[in-house]
């Protein structure tokens, strides 16, 4: 039997690492991976609470989040490839067109 506090702790750590990665990395690909990591941390919580309540709603929604994450990755990677064609870089601080 897995205690709830372990699940919450692991999911909290994963989410924090994801937030830190989004904030500190320059590579757009790694920022996308960190967003995926945050979605997975949320999924872990959903499944734990589904297990806790004995119903299946959390697992069904975790599956939907997984599909949504796949869609997000497809769009994000297409954006990165388009950006690389235009600006020849994937470093997010090299993309400052709006600054004028």
């Amino acid at each position: 039997m897995v205690p709830m506090n372990q699940v919450l702790l692991i999911s909290f750590l994963l989410f924090s690492i994801g937030v830190a990665g989004v904030l500190i990395r320059r590579n757009a690909l790694i920022i996308l991976m960190c967003v995926e990591l945050m979605l997975n941390a949320a999924n872990l919580n959903l499944i734990a609470f589904a297990r806790h309540s004995g119903t299946v709603a959390g697992q069904a929604f975790a599956l939907m989040i997984m599909g949504l994450a796949a869609a997000e990755v497809a769009i994000g990677l297409a954006l990165v490839v388009a950006l690389y064609r235009k600006k020849d870089t994937v470093q997010v601080d090299g993309i400052n067109l709006l600054k004028g």
Partner: peptide, 28 residues
């Protein structure tokens, strides 16, 4: 998919010298 895009995009500039943003200490 990520590996494909890394191979497509990163190979030319394989090693990055500076991987963190300038705001890193503040963000941490």
């Amino acid at each position: 998919l990520f590996l494909f895009v890394v191979m497509l995009v990163e190979m030319t500039k394989y090693k990055e010298r500076k991987i963190f943003q300038t705001q890193t200490p503040l963000a941490l």
